[in-house]
Design a protein around this nucleic acid. Sequence first.
DNA 1: GCGTAACCTTACTCACGAGTAGGTAAGCTG
DNA 2: CAGCTTACCTACTCGTGAGTAAGGTTACGC
Lengths: 211, 211
Amino acid sequence: MRAVPSFRRLPRAVREQQMLDAAVRVFSRRGFHAASVDEIAEAAGISKPMVYAYLGTKEELFIACLDREGVRLMEAVAAAAGEDLAPDEQLWRGLRAFFGFVAAHRDGWTVLYRQARGQEPFAGVLAQLRARMAELVSGMLARASAAAGLEARVDEVATTGYALVGAAEALADWVVEHPDEEPDVTATRLMNVVWMGAGALLRGEGWRQRA
Amino acid sequence: MRAVPSFRRLPRAVREQQMLDAAVRVFSRRGFHAASVDEIAEAAGISKPMVYAYLGTKEELFIACLDREGVRLMEAVAAAAGEDLAPDEQLWRGLRAFFGFVAAHRDGWTVLYRQARGQEPFAGVLAQLRARMAELVSGMLARASAAAGLEARVDEVATTGYALVGAAEALADWVVEHPDEEPDVTATRLMNVVWMGAGALLRGEGWRQRA
DNA sequence: GCGTAACCTTACTCACGAGTAGGTAAGCTG
DNA sequence: CAGCTTACCTACTCGTGAGTAAGGTTACGC
């Protein structure tokens, strides 16, 4: 079963990454509780005490996975969005990077967003990540609003950021389940709905309930 | 600890509902694995073998919770949306009912959307529910599109439905964490973003990437 | 008022998996 | 090649919680 028999001893840093790779894979398939440290060790081509020696308890191991994948995702999106572009262009690039990341790191995505949620000790880590994402988006919207000479209400913008992040997450699931779907196409579709909606909002339009 | 000491023996149907109530509460706080059947039994004011006698194994118990809460949610939304209303009105009413349900049944929501996702045997049940929701929304959009004399592409409409459901879920989490927020306000905000966006789409507008 | 079916309990078994004790061997450093 | 550090293993302990066996008790039909 051991992926690479690894006859040779390897330096700690390398083994740690192998363990994290294996852990992400196993956690993503089984979930935190159903995954056993033995199985993770075996998938990493190593025995259980090594995992405890290097990464600590099962809980700490899971958090290490969360941190690594979370940082990767955040960096990919932030780098793609850049600094000095028009807000809609930033949003588009960020979305494209996001869906690209999900398509390329399905297991990491699954661990972060399907497992960490709900399992109490970890929900906080994820919540922070999502909050940072939503903030990023809200910031763009606020700048776009200011550029259009409008003072959008802070809580409206924040809500919109949250909603957009949620919509992106839902489509990420769609992407995971439809491997043939191009990330760019998905990004464009979401962009169509959200930006045209946000654009209308920024022009002062808004849906009104009938009397 | 027993919620209602229940000196009297109760008929099966009543006890089953009590058990499901307790199970939803405990599962929502602890998660599927961390919750013990003993704790659920105690919360229901009953002993463990009763749970096994009436609802079967822990897994079957969890599915029973999922089914009950899922049906309740779906019925609340479908009933609110009605049949013969304009699509935007249907959407608004559906969203309001949705956020209202979540605010009133936090535990049920948590079990459905935070626990069932990811835990492999249950993800399918939830996926079906979400698919039905997305279909409901997509149907509205398609009818709105047809009424506007436009032939929207099927996959675009489907994607939009998915994205909207995802956005609603994200805001549902927001509602759960901000108990003072009015469900109606949240529904209106989402409506603003999505409908204006969808409206623009239906008018043939669309965001275009710059050359 | 008595049988019997439905309700309900105490008190187990048993598997599984987190975490560890204690030891072996490989590779560097002199 | 002696000695030390680091990588690595086999083989345990021990708590926890799912699921059950076997029997007690209440209420209702007749």
